[in-house]
């Protein structure tokens, strides 16, 4: 159960995030989660949106370099220790988390961890064995 993440190459300078989000806003694309990673003069904006392929198309048309790749949306209880549980389950199984970011779902007392892992299949197995739920794309839109 994977969701698609949109990532955008940006130079690390004022106005780039606003440009990306404006383009998405104008296209009526809703952002569910976002993370910005930077390294020196460049960075990558990673987004979970309701229409990832449309997002890629509008951003590419505006001249951005855009990728779409698969990540896990892992449901967590909004309480101490829940992230640790996920991280140790994956770590014990030898699955590496390349990067991750989290957001809290409205009114559901739940949180969602977006994680890019090196072995999606194995991560899915491990997490389901631990009783940890993975969210599907449409579920993400409703929270």
């Amino acid at each position: 159960m994977v969701v698609e993440q949109v990532s955008v190459f940006v130079e690390n300078k004022p106005g780039r995030l606003s440009k990306v989000t404006e383009i998405l806003g104008e296209a009526g694309i809703n952002i569910r989660a976002l993370s910005i990673a930077e390294l020196g003069e460049f960075g990558v904006i990673r987004l979970i949106v309701d229409k990832p392929h449309e997002a890629k198309a509008v951003l590419t048309n505006s001249g951005f370099t855009v990728g779409v790749n698969k990540v896990l949306a892992i449901e967590m209880g909004d309480e101490p220790g829940s992230l640790a549980k996920i991280a140790s389950a994956l770590g014990d199984a030898g699955v590496n988390i390349d990067y991750a970011y989290a957001f809290i779902a409205r009114a559901k007392e739940k949180a969602v961890l977006i994680a890019r892992v090196d072995d999606i299949k194995k991560a899915e197995e491990v997490l389901s064995r631990e009783g940890i739920r993975l969210l599907e794309a449409d579920e993400l839109q409703s929270i």
């Binding site: 993440q5 990532s7 460049f42 990558v44 990728g67 890019r116």
Partner: peptide, 15 residues
């Protein structure tokens, strides 16, 4: 210029 061909969502790969 970074083209889709070389782009990665992972910073380490870009670096």
């Amino acid at each position: 210029e970074v083209t889709p061909e070389v782009f990665s969502d992972k910073l380490a790969e870009l670096e």
